[in-house]
């Protein structure tokens, strides 16, 4: 059963997968920009291009793993903003850095476990469960944990501050964090029991359960991992802009994360795709945004074009991976 899932997951049976289409678009776009946009194809700009989407990429990798398991986590952005903002606020109030980080990270893990329990044991559909927790996290955090939307970065963060704007051999730290996390999650998804179970659950939850896959614990673990990744992404974001603005929760970021995942070719019906798809999706969005900014195209126009890309990607997904009786029965997200 898991073997079958692997075959589907790799997309090897089909000649033209969505991943390949998106990759082709990315290559075309990249070549086009390189030829016609002066200053696009320089080492530094490519580094910037990647840096610009690394937080998005980090979140998307975790979201990708989630969607593969047939779940979704809409609370990621709220969690990332609030857990990190709280930790920073505690440090600003005079708490030692390690303790504050432990509390912020611990709170994130707790929320992850709660999400997992709500979805796996209480059996609330993931969409509603995580949408509700997102509102809870934001509301509770704003009410009780932080005093202002924007929490500024304390001066005494030490090496953590390097996460956002340091460079190693010319490669920006956020890109390195993204690469490491992507590699780790790819390894887990492909070479561990946990990863294969995730594919099995996403492919068909009922079958997975009958086969003996511990569906519920795996889901709880998935949400926990997603929460930890959100915390790390938050640290990268906050140290990059020297502050954490919790209003990021109100932006379209969470949908952009889903856009990257779907664009890369991870079907929303679950059980398909891998980290590679997310990386391809991230590259396309990064190239697109970077090129648009160089061309000085307005943000609102960029959003419209991005929306069109998402629609096209979903339409292609529908045509290439049509819903069959089996996938539609196990409940789409």
């Amino acid at each position: 059963m898991t073997r079958a899932a692997i075959a589907v997951g790799g997309g090897g049976r089909r000649l033209i997968t969505q991943e390949k289409i998106v990759f082709a678009i990315f290559v075309l776009l990249f070549l086009g920009f390189s030829l016609f946009l002066p200053g696009f194809l320089t080492t530094n700009n490519v580094a910037l291009l990647l840096q610009g989407v690394s937080v998005l990429g980090i979140l998307s990798v975790a979201m990708g793993a989630m969607i593969i398991a047939g779940a979704i986590d809409l609370s990621m952005v709220a969690l990332m903003a609030m857990s990190v903002a709280w930790a920073l606020q505690l440090i600003n109030n005079g708490m030692p850095v390690p303790l504050a980080m432990l509390i912020g990270g611990g709170a994130a893990i707790l929320v992850g476990v709660i999400n997992g329990v709500l979805v796996a044991y209480v059996e609330i559909p993931p969409l509603f469960a995580t949408l509700a927790t997102a509102a809870c996290i934001y509301g509770f955090g704003r009410f009780g944990l932080i005093s202002q939307d924007t929490v500024y970065l304390p001066k005494n963060l030490g090496w953590i501050a390097e996460l956002g704007h340091g460079r190693v051999y010319g490669v920006p730290m956020p890109v390195i964090v993204f690469a490491l996390l992507a590699a780790a999650i790819a390894l887990v998804m492909n070479y561990t029991k946990f990863g294969r179970f995730a594919y099995a659950i996403g492919d068909n939850r009922a079958t997975a359960r009958i086969t003996g896959v511990p569906v519920r614990p795996v889901l709880v673990l998935q949400y926990t991992v997603s929460a930890i990744v959100a915390f790390v992404a938050g640290l990268v974001q906050a140290t990059a802009v020297n502050s954490m603005n919790t209003r990021i929760t109100d932006t379209l970021l969470i949908y952009e994360v889903i856009l990257v995942v779907v664009l890369g070719g991870i079907g929303l019906s679950g059980g398909k795709g891998g980290v590679r798809n997310v990386v391809v999706g991230t590259l396309l969005i990064g190239t697109f945004l970077n090129g648009m900014t160089i061309m000085n195209i307005q943000f609102t126009a960029q959003n419209a074009i991005k929306g069109l890309i998402l629609l096209t990607a979903i339409a292609i997904d529908q045509v290439i991976n049509p819903r069959d009786e089996q996938t539609s029965q196990q409940g789409d997200i």
Binding site: T150, A240, S243, I248, N290, T293, I294
Partner: peptide, 11 residues
């Protein structure tokens, strides 16, 4: 948005 402002300014 500070993140967006940073991305634009970098580019």
């Amino acid at each position: 948005d500070a993140g967006k402002a940073q991305e634009i300014t970098r580019t």
